[in-house]
């Protein structure tokens, strides 16, 4: 009996080690990347006013405004006069962006506003995309300054971040690990409330389309 004890202890130890390894293997699965994770975008982050470079593009958020209506600036070619004003049941958040390319000409895809509650607001389709950051090609050597416009409930403004990414390249492939820039707009509760209370009645998007 005394002779078999160490063997039994060793077997118990082996069983325990096995159980621990099995548990660890199962637990490790919860850290495994889902498909969305490993093919999802690579995100470069920054704050308001900072230049954030995400491999292909550099983006800077230079200012944030709120407005109850958006009007397109005088744009030759489009039907003039009525119908150019956009309104919303929430509020329009206008983010002034500056963007440039690090190598080859790029276009910016419609940006997304990521809120504290985890919601994703796509840039509004009520304003002409040519007047926003999605319009012009961005090229190396100079900054393109255009806005991104979102329609959001005022309560969602605090803690919001803007996500900007270049359009997919041609070739029709969905690119894994595409670059994106995420900028914290620096809106705490007080700043968000101030933004809403001082919202302009009409914000005019400048520039030729």
């Amino acid at each position: 009996m005394a002779r078999s004890a160490p063997g039994r202890w060793r077997r118990l130890g082996g069983l325990l080690t096995g159980a621990v390894l099995a548990t660890a293997a199962v637990a490790a699965q919860s850290f495994a990347f889902s498909r969305d994770d490993y093919s999802g975008p690579l995100t470069w982050t920054g704050g308001l006013g900072e230049t954030v470079t995400a491999s292909r593009i550099s983006v800077r958020a230079e200012g944030v405004h709120a407005a109850r209506a958006i009007e397109a600036g005088t744009s030759p070619g489009t039907s003039s006069g009525t119908g150019q004003r956009a309104t919303t049941k929430g509020i329009f958040l206008v983010v002034d962006l500056a963007a440039t390319s690090t190598r080859v000409p790029q276009r910016i895809a419609p940006p997304v506003l990521l809120t504290e509650s985890g919601r994703r607001y796509a840039a509004t389709d009520k304003v002409n995309g040519d007047l926003t950051i999605t319009g012009p090609f961005i090229q190396w050597g100079w900054w393109v300054r255009k806005a991104a416009v979102f329609e959001v409930p005022p309560a969602e403004l605090a803690g919001a971040r803007i996500v900007v990414h270049p359009q997919e390249g041609n070739g029709g492939l969905i690119e894994p690990s595409a670059p994106e820039v995420e900028i914290d707009l620096g809106l705490d509760e007080a700043a968000a409330a101030r933004l809403v209370s001082t919202a302009k009645d009409v914000h005019t998007l400048a520039g030729k389309p």
Partner: peptide, 16 residues
């Protein structure tokens, strides 16, 4: 439907 430009989006938490 909205005053002015119509849209095609439904944003989270907003009534349209």
């Amino acid at each position: 439907q909205a005053d002015g430009v119509p849209g095609k989006q439904l944003h989270p938490g907003m009534e349209s």
